[in-house]
């Protein structure tokens, strides 16, 4: 029996077993070798091997190697770093100058079927204005290989997931920017991909809309088990949303690892006080502790745990009211500060 490469499942927590749809009956069939077939032993979803892309004399990506595993991965870097080029190479929209961009071992520019495992939310406008979100998502699901009857159900599920259930019968042209971004995200999820590549998903959104979009992305990644690659130049977006980051700059990978590794505690203690800051600095200095003013806080480089006792004594001596005392954490901005 011919099995159509189409997997379908409702939006439930966790990843359902892939099924294929019989072309005759439209009923789900046992899964035998469809291109979505996901081997849980293969942790690497995307892999760049010596990936190079040149546009004439301009080198967009210079022999980069990195891997994307399950979870939410941030692709971070300034404009022109090569993020969008990397995404287009994985999607098969561009052919590498050398090296390879593989999706679970397949090269998407050679294997069209491999693209069915990917979802893509572009940065630029990509929505028709005249038709409704429901029509558009149903069509996109069908183009991805889902039978019409299932495509309609899938479209309704996804639009509910992104919070557009009430608006789904309005033409997309009447939507706000935030709603259009949600439709863009929804179309990328319409065919239940394994990995979704989001190119600057918060572009053009106000702070509230941005937070909503990031919350939606987190929910998509964590509740529904869809791995996400989030490309952004906004460190805040990546820091609050991603598990891992890959930092690109000038077409090269400069940093790579878990976000928690980049935001771990430092040896610097931040003491935030209500008053007597200058007196406290003097009292600490008399105890051999150098404190520097850091905004509204004092920053102390800790050398031993005994310095906590000295700080307590200095606070009591100067009768200073303390608001907060905690080790400083690294921020993703430090990556770029250290580079510069």
């Amino acid at each position: 029996m011919h099995h159509v490469p189409c997997r379908y499942y409702g939006l439930v927590s966790g990843r359902a077993k892939p099924v294929s749809i019989s072309p005759q009956s439209g009923a789900p069939q046992a899964d035998l070798g469809d291109p979505w077939a996901y081997n849980p032993l293969v942790a690497t979803l995307l892999q760049a091997k010596s990936l190079t892309k040149r546009y004439g004399a301009t080198v967009a990506l210079d022999s980069v190697d990195f891997e994307v595993q399950e979870g939410i991965t941030g692709l971070l870097g300034p404009n022109g770093a090569g993020k969008s080029t990397a995404i287009k190479l994985f999607l098969g929209l561009l052919k590498p100058t050398s090296g390879s961009a593989e999706v679970m071992g397949d090269k998407t520019y050679e294997s069209v079927e491999a693209r069915a495992r990917l979802g893509y939310m572009p940065e630029h406008d990509c929505l028709p204005t005249a038709i409704t979100a429901s029509e558009f998502l149903t069509h996109m699901a069908q183009v991805s290989g889902i039978p019409p009857a299932f495509a309609r159900i899938r479209a309704a599920d996804i639009l509910r997931h992104v919070g557009l259930e009430e608006e789904r019968y309005r033409p997309i042209g009447q939507y706000s920017t935030g709603m259009k971004q949600r439709v863009k995200l929804a179309q990328s999820l319409a065919h239940d991909p394994l990995v979704v590549l989001l190119d600057e998903p918060t572009a053009g959104l106000d702070p509230g809309g941005r937070e909503d979009m990031l919350r939606l992305i987190r929910r998509t990644g964590r509740d529904f088990g869809i791995s996400i690659v989030l490309s952004s130049h906004l460190m805040g977006d990546v820091e609050t949303t991603c598990d891992r980051i890959i930092v690109l700059d000038g077409g090269r990978v400069t940093e790579e690892g878990a976000v928690s590794g980049f935001t771990q505690e430092t040896e610097t203690l931040l003491i935030e006080v209500y008053d007597n800051r200058e007196e406290l600095v003097i009292a600490l200095a008399s105890r051999g502790i150098i404190a520097t003013l850091d905004g509204s806080s004092l920053a102390v480089e800790l050398e031993s745990q005994s310095e906590y006792d000295a700080i307590r004594d200095a606070l009591v001596e100067t009768n200073t009211r303390i608001r907060r005392m905690a080790p400083r954490r690294h921020q993703l901005t430090d990556i770029f500060r250290s580079d510069s």
Binding site: G92, L93, Y120, H124, C126, G145
Partner: peptide, 9 residues
């Protein structure tokens, strides 16, 4: 929309 078609199979 063409960019969405071309990233599909």
């Amino acid at each position: 929309v063409i960019s969405l078609y071309l990233v599909r199979p």
